[in-house]
């Protein structure tokens, strides 16, 4: 498959990049690692006239941590760099674990943190070639008014399948979003609209430039569990991130559970977290929390494997994630 024609723009500073995005708006797309964007362009899913390449902007490539200000990671940080970072391994293990389970090492060398967070939603009826898609009417995600997965469905249910977002949301991360002349900082969870057709709350002239995690999160234990059929490469069929903190020896002070690949956005399983909070960890409690996570999972038959199996696996993976997170705390 071939890439459609586009103009490649190479800004050398963030300011210049934002300027270009302000100028070209919907005509432009940001490229960093390119591991998702180029595939979508080859499939004819996206046809931007301009690609604004962020790779040569050094100010977006950093990992900084201090005990008070917390953790700050530049958008362009490669997943491989993130995985190899000692401070992240030691203090934010859930993040390095989730990143290490993304795709496979060659893609981790190319893919960036922000690129992974900004993954488009996926569907077996959407991530296909132009030829493949022309065999059936347009779906919601390609501008039509039908869903091929849920017959009679009234909206797009394409799945968000990122691995890193659930870990960061469980850590309470925020993201800094920049556009020409303005910055905003929002909770990462708010980046996701829950709309399959347009899953990110990002304007065409905006760029996610930084991820921030509060210093207190460095003391929490975390784990990420991923279900996939092969030992590498695959997007999650189900992913569960758990982050817990202790109050004294045996009591859970705070617990955060986030699911991925079972809906159009990462899902914060609030009830599951609430059940754990202030309690001592028992098998029964873990099962209850897993049951609460199961309740909020909404997988449909759009990314391989069968949805009822995937939903069952939310229960299993949640239990494992809570147990592992607790041990690591």
């Amino acid at each position: 498959m071939r890439l459609p024609k586009f103009e490649h723009l190479q800004p050398e500073s963030l300011e210049e990049a934002l300027e270009l995005l302000a100028e070209h708006g919907e005509q432009a797309k940001v490229i960093a690692g390119g591991t998702e964007l180029l595939v979508s362009m080859k499939h004819g899913l996206l046809a931007p006239s301009y690609l604004v390449n962020l790779k040569e902007i050094p100010e977006l490539n950093f990992i900084a941590y201090d005990g008070e200000g917390g953790l700050r990671i530049g958008a362009l940080t490669k997943l491989a760099t993130l995985i190899g970072s000692p401070v992240i391994q030691e203090s934010f293990a859930v993040l390095s674990r989730a990143a290490s389970l993304v795709a496979a090492p060659p893609l981790q060398q190319m893919g960036t943190l922000a690129g992974n967070l900004c993954l488009d939603t996926r569907c077996l009826y959407y991530n296909q070639s132009r030829f493949w898609r022309q065999a059936r009417p347009r779906c919601y995600k390609t501008g039509g008014d039908t869903c091929h997965v849920v017959k009679g469905g009234n909206r797009c249910l394409a799945a968000y399948q990122g691995d890193v977002a659930p870990a960061l949301i469980a850590l309470g991360a925020s993201v800094k979003i920049a556009k020409k002349g303005a910055d905003r900082i929002v909770p990462l969870a708010d980046l996701y609209t829950g709309k399959g057709e347009r899953p990110l709350a990002l304007q065409a002239d905006e760029v996610l430039v930084e991820v921030q995690v509060a210093a207190e999160a460095a003391r929490w234990g975390g784990d990420y569990q991923k279900l996939r059929y092969r030992g590498a490469m695959d997007f999650p069929l189900v992913g569960v991130a758990a982050v817990v903190s202790r109050d004294g020896l045996d009591t859970i002070a705070r617990a955060s559970l986030v699911l991925t690949a079972v809906s159009t956005a990462p899902i914060l399983a609030e009830e599951a977290g609430r059940l754990l909070q202030g309690q001592e960890l028992t098998d029964e409690l873990v099962a209850q929390a897993a049951g609460a996570a199961y309740e909020v999972a909404r997988p449909v038959n759009n990314i391989g494997s069968n949805p009822s199996y995937r939903r069952k696996m939310v229960r299993v993976l949640t239990k494992r994630a809570i147990r592992n997170a607790w041990v690591r705390e």
Partner: peptide, 10 residues
């Protein structure tokens, strides 16, 4: 990607 040929790790 979606047709699961085993990988070296499998």
């Amino acid at each position: 990607l979606e047709y699961k040929v085993p990988l070296s790790v499998d």
